[in-house]
Design a protein around this nucleic acid. Structure first.
Lengths: 117, 117
DNA sequence: GCAAGTACGCACAAATTTGTGCCTATTTGC
DNA sequence: GCAAATAGGCACAAATTTGTGCGTACTTGC
């Protein structure tokens, strides 16, 4: 993993959150795992991103204690992910964010289109 | 501003939120403005980051409609920021995130220290 | 006059995150 | 045998974000 050169800010909850959950797909992954998409294959179909990118995000979520990875040693290898208590504690937040986004979708999409950024 | 090469995902509220508020200092800026730190100087003392970095984040917040910038054309130039309705609509979310971070600070700090990331 | 405070800005460097090229191995189903 | 699905990996390229070097201009207070 990438070794940070700039010290991590921990002084407020916002930073702590951001530091751990900044990944482009992390919140989505947690959400989809929570609704029952436990298999890598299923998750990948949902979020439509390269397998290795998704894996990296999942690995970090595991390392950071939001998700557990269960490997079944069957003939055809099989993996399942499930949320830890910490991961579950994020769900209300994720849902709030998602709702905020949907409630303001009209305005926000306009902004996104206009912005040069 | 930076012209994106990878298309922006808008399909879910999480992405929309992330796209606009991903900046390292954005949520903090919105929060501090909401509690009355309207002047750039005051904000800068709080978040302790280079002026130009902060300005860039503020400019984007203005462009995206979360914050309004008011310039007073006095002899000594003066600037004040204030939240728009859209910016205000984020406050509950920001507070929830902040609380989540603080509530789980013990665990999360451990994770942050251990993680090589 | 001059330090300190206000504010603004370009261009570039550095850090960080995200994505891709190319490889390995096993089993199931045709 | 061979395609497709399972899962894993290294090394690097590309994209994106964050931070810095250096410069401008004005006003107030000593």
């Amino acid at each position: 993993m990438y070794k940070k050169k700039i010290p991590i800010r921990k002084e407020c909850g916002l930073h702590v959150f951001k530091e751990l959950l900044n990944g482009k797909w992390k919140l989505m992954l947690i959400y989809y795992i929570s609704v029952g998409l436990k298999r890598p294959g299923a998750l990948q179909k949902k979020i439509a991103v390269d397998r290795r990118v998704m894996n990296k995000q999942l690995d970090e979520l595991v390392q950071h204690g939001f998700v557990e990875k269960v490997s079944f040693d069957t003939k055809v290898p099989k993996v399942e992910y499930q949320l830890t208590a910490l991961g579950n504690s994020l769900l209300p937040l994720i849902i709030s964010i998602e709702e905020w986004g949907e409630n303001n979708r009209a305005v926000l999409e306009t902004v996104l289109s206009e912005a040069i950024t």
